[in-house]
Amino acid sequence: MVTIDLTTPPARPTSLLDGIARRLALTLPELRLVAELAGGAPLPFDVVPDADEAVRADSLSGRLGEDRGTAEDSAYVEALRTLHDPHETLRRRGLLTDDGADPGVVGAVGLLATPRLALDIDVAAGSAQVKAWHRQSGGAVASLSTCDGIVFELAWFPVDQWTAELARVTAPPEDLPLGASQVPEVLDVPYALADAVGEAMRSGRSDLVPVLVGQSGGTVVADGAALGDAEAAAVVSALHAEGQGRLRILAAEVSERATTSVGVVSWVLLKDGWHSLTPRHDDGARVAVLRVDPADLPTELAPVLAQVTVREEP
């Protein structure tokens, strides 16, 4: 069995190419053509190959997690129709010859369809939303990502470069301002209270927050110290009010011998950057909120991968 250590920095590459992930931009038609040439490899999102463009758009947009209106849906379909024939564009780029598609591209798409470990990544920051799919098997990883469902980035790289690729996922947009936050670096909140305060604020009833805090049976702890009701109300309110984005990763082992087990990593983007959300059950149902940096994602993800990985019997 391959053990993946995401907490240790990758070894120094022996050559320039060893340290660089191969990246390629592909339109949806090009991606679908490469998948066909890779033996009909299924893509990690739902696209019906023989349906009309409208059906394909509905299917893909649903997988991307967006609720498109009629106008946006029509614009999406029209954008797909304006794309050039994928056979011509791939040939012009040297990715398709009479002998078939580029072996590296075909191999990457094939790996997307036959992984051992699978990560489905959903990141929203400001007005941008990105979906990414990372697939690993043996010593290789392939990733596919898109922000519009039309143009995709396909990448493939050695497994020891996975740490750096994961850090790319969480980099906040440069035009998104970050500053000071009212949420402390380490916060521990009863889950029921956090949920109730969020619902009250979404309903425009922030006046209920002090009441909810006062009626809560649990203590809000910030940086190791219990907070009074007024401080707790301000901090838990800020946790919801400051939200500028979110990240969710679903991790699973894909194997015939594996019983499907899904692990989850959840982060929220506040005024000062990312904070991880981790449920706790050792002292009732609580959620730990911890200030993190993009480079911390591999460390947060490593125990989740260990949790979902099936151990082979000796």
Rank of each mutant, 00 (worst) to 15 (best):
D73Y: 07
E88T: 09
R91K: 12
A113T: 08
T82F: 13
R81L: 09
A71K: 06
L90W: 11
R92Y: 09
G65V: 07
D102A: 07
V77Q: 11
L95I: 00
D99F: 07
V77R: 11
R91N: 08
G69Y: 06
D73K: 10
L80Q: 04
G94Q: 00
A113V: 11
D99H: 14
V106L: 13
E72Q: 09
D85Q: 07
V105Q: 13
T97S: 08
E66D: 15
T114H: 07
G69W: 08
R68Y: 12
G69T: 04
L112Y: 06
D73P: 02
G62C: 00
L96Y: 13
V105A: 05
R63H: 10
G104E: 06
T114K: 08
A108C: 14
R93P: 00
A108P: 00
D73H: 15
S74T: 13
A79N: 13
L64Q: 12
R93C: 01
A75H: 15
G107W: 09
A108N: 09
Y76V: 01
L83W: 05
R63C: 12
L96K: 06
S74P: 00
L111E: 02
E72S: 14
A71S: 12
T114N: 10
T89F: 08
T97H: 07
L111W: 01
D73S: 14
D99I: 04
L83V: 05
S74E: 06
D102Y: 13
E78H: 10
R116W: 15
L64W: 08
E78Q: 13
R91W: 05
V109E: 00
A101R: 02
G69E: 01
P103M: 03
D67G: 03
L80H: 14
E88Y: 03
T70E: 15
L64Y: 08
L80T: 08
D98C: 00
P86S: 09
D67I: 10
R63N: 05
L64I: 04
E88S: 02
R116C: 15
T82E: 04
R81D: 13
L117Y: 12
D98S: 10
A101C: 14
P86D: 15
P115L: 02
D67K: 11
D99A: 15
E66I: 14
H84C: 14
G65Y: 05
L111N: 07
T89D: 04
G104L: 11
P115S: 11
G100T: 06
A79S: 14
D73R: 10
G110L: 14
L83R: 14
D98I: 00
G62R: 04
G94D: 01
L80M: 13
A118S: 13
L95V: 00
R81H: 09
R93L: 03
G110H: 07
L64T: 08
H87C: 11
D85T: 15
R81V: 08
D99C: 03
D98F: 01
A108Q: 03
G62Q: 00
D102C: 03
L80F: 14
L117M: 09
A113Y: 01
D102V: 07
H84F: 04
A101I: 04
V77E: 07
R93H: 05
T70M: 14
D73G: 04
Y76E: 09
L95Q: 05
L64D: 00
G94I: 01
L64K: 08
G65L: 06
P115N: 05
A71Y: 03
Y76M: 02
V106K: 01
D67A: 13
A113N: 01
L64C: 06
L117W: 06
T97R: 09
E88C: 08
L111A: 12
R63M: 13
G107N: 03
